[in-house]
Amino acid sequence: MSFGDEHGYGGDPGHTSGRADDGFGGTGQTRTRLPDGRSGDMYGGPRRPARSSRSLITVVGVVVLLIAAIAFANRGGGGGGASDGGKGGAAGPGADPTAATGVEPVTGKNGEIPSGFARNEQGAASAAANYAVALGSDGMFNAASRRDIIRATHDPATAEGLLSDLDRAYSPAFLANVGLNEDGSTPAGLTFVSRSVPVGTKVTEVSSAAATVEVWSTGLVGLAGEESTKPVTETWFTITEKLKWIDGDWKISSSSQTEGPTPVNGDNRASTADEIAKAVQGYGGFTYAR
């Protein structure tokens, strides 16, 4: 699946946040912190599920997993895999986010999203990676949290128009086709999974006022549970974010997404729906990428 749409935006500053560094320069290297307890066979499988539709609707201003989710929704029902539970909905303890270690990360937050990135190459790469995580999260499927995410990551001059487009895209019919309830909530007995995990970043352009960063990522999307007909699958994609320095932080002015690079699938066995549900509940996502 290839997504070539890109929409340019422009606007005036409108968001304030704390600063970590005002110097320009940097190493250009980004390291990603993942949960220490991750397991290599959480969601791998001997073969990839077939996708029946590769020419699907697109949205102005790319949101990381939306188009992948549309393909997932239109792929058609598949078995949820062997399961001896899948009661992931509301039961069990919540997953704990994995805090950053090592060199002190940014200390600011805009809601749940890190803010106050350095005004240099490394800061731009970190901002792009963190924004990719937020835009690929399950929060994008809920209207209220979607507004918080978009406003925290985008140029204020373009955020409201993008939200209008996304509200139309995340329609009750679309959410139902994904397997969710029409309000975006998860059906009882199932666990909805939508995560984006950056594998690496590449800064292709950078100045004191703007940057272009490519974030190569893998994502998980689907419903885990005994009755699921939309099993959790993996996707590989690269999101290109055009960033602007706005009132003390990097913000997305436009973005586009392409499929891959996609590695050869390994020989890991496909986990049961119950194992996937427990993994999602037990392993929190990382809170900072650099």
Rank of each mutant, 00 (worst) to 15 (best):
V103T: 14
E104C: 08
E104R: 15
P105H: 11
K109Q: 10
N110G: 03
E112C: 01
I113L: 10
P114Q: 02
P114R: 09
P114Y: 09
S115T: 10
S115E: 15
G116T: 12
G116I: 11
G116M: 11
F117Y: 14
F117D: 03
R119L: 01
R119Y: 01
E121K: 05
G123E: 03
A124L: 07
A125F: 13
S126D: 15
A127L: 03
A127Q: 11
A128I: 02
A129N: 08
A129F: 09
A129D: 10
Y131N: 04
Y131G: 00
A132R: 04
A132V: 12
A134K: 07
A134S: 13
L135N: 04
G136I: 03
G136E: 06
S137H: 05
D138A: 13
D138I: 02
D138L: 09
G139L: 08
F141E: 09
N142L: 13
A143W: 02
A144V: 11
R146E: 06
R147K: 13
R147Q: 14
D148K: 14
D148Q: 14
D148T: 13
I149D: 03
I149W: 02
I149L: 04
I150H: 04
I150D: 00
R151W: 03
R151M: 08
R151D: 11
R151T: 15
A152W: 04
H154A: 03
H154M: 12
D155Y: 07
D155S: 14
D155A: 08
A157F: 07
A157V: 12
T158M: 12
E160D: 15
G161F: 11
L163P: 08
L163Q: 10
S164Y: 11
L166G: 00
L166N: 01
D167R: 10
D167G: 10
Y170E: 02
P172M: 05
F174P: 01
L175P: 01
N177T: 11
N177V: 02
V178I: 12
V178K: 02
G179Y: 10
G179C: 03
G179S: 04
L180E: 08
N181G: 04
N181R: 14
T186P: 09
T186H: 06
T186I: 12
P187G: 08
P187C: 12
P187H: 12
A188W: 00
G189W: 10
L190A: 02
L190T: 08
T191S: 15
V193C: 11
S194P: 02
S194G: 05
S196P: 09
S196V: 10
V197I: 15
V197L: 14
V197W: 12
G200R: 15
G200Q: 13
T201I: 05
V203T: 15
V203P: 07
T204E: 07
E205G: 11
S207G: 09
S208N: 09
S208P: 00
A209H: 14
T212H: 04
T212V: 14
V213E: 08
V215E: 03
S217Q: 07
S217R: 01
T218N: 13
T218S: 14
L220N: 07
V221R: 05
V221G: 06
G222T: 10
L223I: 08
A224V: 06
A224R: 07
E227D: 15
S228F: 09
T229P: 04
T229H: 06
P231M: 06
P231F: 10
T233I: 15
T233D: 15
T233N: 13
T235Y: 07
T235Q: 01
W236K: 00
F237A: 05
T238E: 09
T238Y: 13
